[in-house]
Amino acid sequence: MPTVANSSLTYEILMYLNSFYFGMFAVCELGMGLFKAANLPSPSTSKALMEFALLLFLLATEGGRIYLGRKGNLTERGLPILIGIILTIPSSLATLYLLLWQYYVLRLEVILCSIQLVLLASELVIAIMCLIAFYRPPPPEK
């Protein structure tokens, strides 16, 4: 009897698209950070360095989250997806910092961070649904 595949195509598509979007997002944030450091008056260099460190932290957490989510979905294991769900929290907080709490926030940053937050929220919902599908008891055989 063939086994039923539980992996979610929707989750895989979202993670795949987010891997490309986040690459573009990180490059744009780095460019805008360099632009702000060079052209806008900053209260201190430590603030700019802290924002670049936050961007590096976001790169690490988002890269790990995407990798673990895709790996867990394709192997139909719940633990990597669960760790990916947990990594969504610091990733979304770092994105919220870039959106709301930076010293200078450019209009392009508002647009890019908003799209990133929508992707994070939709991936979180689909990941939870995927976990439920993985741990659902199999239907009784006839």
Rank of each mutant, 00 (worst) to 15 (best):
L9K: 11
L9Q: 12
L9P: 05
T10N: 07
T10Y: 06
T10D: 06
T10E: 04
Y11Q: 07
Y11D: 05
E12F: 11
E12M: 05
L14I: 11
L14F: 14
L14A: 07
L14Q: 12
M15C: 15
M15N: 10
Y16S: 15
Y16M: 09
L17G: 12
L17N: 11
L17T: 15
S19W: 04
F20L: 15
F20H: 14
F22V: 15
F22A: 12
F22M: 13
G23I: 11
M24N: 14
M24H: 09
M24A: 15
M24D: 10
M24P: 05
F25E: 02
F25N: 01
F25Y: 15
F25D: 01
F25T: 01
A26T: 05
V27M: 10
V27K: 01
C28T: 13
C28M: 15
C28R: 08
C28S: 14
C28I: 12
C28L: 13
E29T: 04
L30S: 06
L30Y: 09
L30H: 00
L30M: 12
L30A: 11
G31E: 02
G31P: 02
G31H: 02
M32W: 12
M32K: 00
M32V: 07
M32Y: 09
G33M: 12
G33F: 03
L34E: 10
L34P: 02
L34Q: 05
L34C: 11
F35N: 06
F35I: 03
F35G: 00
K36M: 14
K36I: 13
A37Q: 10
A37G: 03
A37D: 10
A37P: 00
A37N: 08
A38K: 09
N39T: 09
N39K: 05
L40K: 08
L40G: 00
P41I: 08
P41S: 10
S42F: 03
P43H: 02
P43A: 04
S44G: 10
S44F: 04
T45S: 13
T45N: 08
T45G: 06
T45R: 13
S46E: 09
S46D: 06
S46Q: 00
A48C: 04
A48Y: 00
L49N: 15
L49I: 07
